[in-house]
């Protein structure tokens, strides 16, 4: 009899503990940051291909790029992972611009890959503007990149800064995460457009392209 009562008590205590833990977890999750993995699709540029072979090196920082938006009190509010969507965008963009593109796991693989140059972009700054903070009716994303073009031996060819901007109106969006996602995809689309059209106009790149053109025509 006593044993039965004791078991019932133990079960009830366990249930209460489980409920308390679940309650704590629910409270903690309500206070924690909301995580978002940016997903989107990017059109393929309709441009003439540059008759060169390019190595694409996306380092660990870019592939796993994470931006954290903090509240005014300094607590994490949103964790925005945009590394994979950057990989997707560059992997879609560059094969449309160059005759051949080879993805490199390491800069050391460039020489063996037989590429004419290696493109290695990096994100320098990422800014997010949320309507609840700006009092505007749109989500905005601003990203600053450092674009580097290197020789297969790692020698400097060009190094330039590109910025991109994306905006999406609040109207019709069901969640803040949706707004951040749309604005980030819009910023990456802006980057793709700007990069495609300005690549050949960067002075060092222009000189390099001209020199490669001479090499090709002399061969």
């Amino acid at each position: 009899m006593f044993a039965v009562t004791g078991n019932r008590k133990t079960t009830a205590t366990r249930s209460l503990r489980v409920l308390a833990v679940l309650g704590m977890l629910a409270l903690l999750s309500a206070c924690g940051a909301s995580s978002l993995v940016v997903e989107g699709s990017y059109p393929t540029p309709a441009v003439r291909k540059i008759p060169l072979s390019l190595g694409l090196y996306l380092d660990e920082n870019l592939r796993n790029f994470l931006y954290i938006e903090y509240t005014e009190t300094g607590a994490e509010e949103y964790r925005v992972s945009s590394g994979q969507t950057h990989v997707q965008m560059f992997s879609n963009l560059l094969p449309a611009m160059f005759e051949r593109v080879q993805v490199l796991e390491s800069m050391d693989d460039a020489a063996a890959a037989g590429v004419d140059a290696v493109f290695a972009p990096s994100i320098e700054e990422f800014q997010l503007a949320l309507p609840q903070k700006t009092r505007l009716d749109s989500y905005e994303v601003w990203v600053k990149y450092n674009m580097r073009l290197l020789g297969p031996d790692g020698a400097y060819i060009a190094d330039w800064v590109l910025t991109s901007y994306g905006k999406t109106p609040m109207e019709g969006l069901l969640s803040v995460e949706g707004g951040i996602n749309e604005a980030t995809v819009s910023a990456l689309r802006d980057l793709a457009s700007n990069f495609t059209l300005s690549f050949g106009a960067v002075p060092e790149v222009r000189d390099w392209l001209a020199s490669r053109q001479n090499v090709v025509s002399n061969q």
């Binding site: 441009v47 457009s193 059209l197």
Partner: peptide, 8 residues
């Protein structure tokens, strides 16, 4: 793309 984007 990219000829009819807002910037271009």
């Amino acid at each position: 793309f990219p000829w009819f984007e807002p910037r271009t």
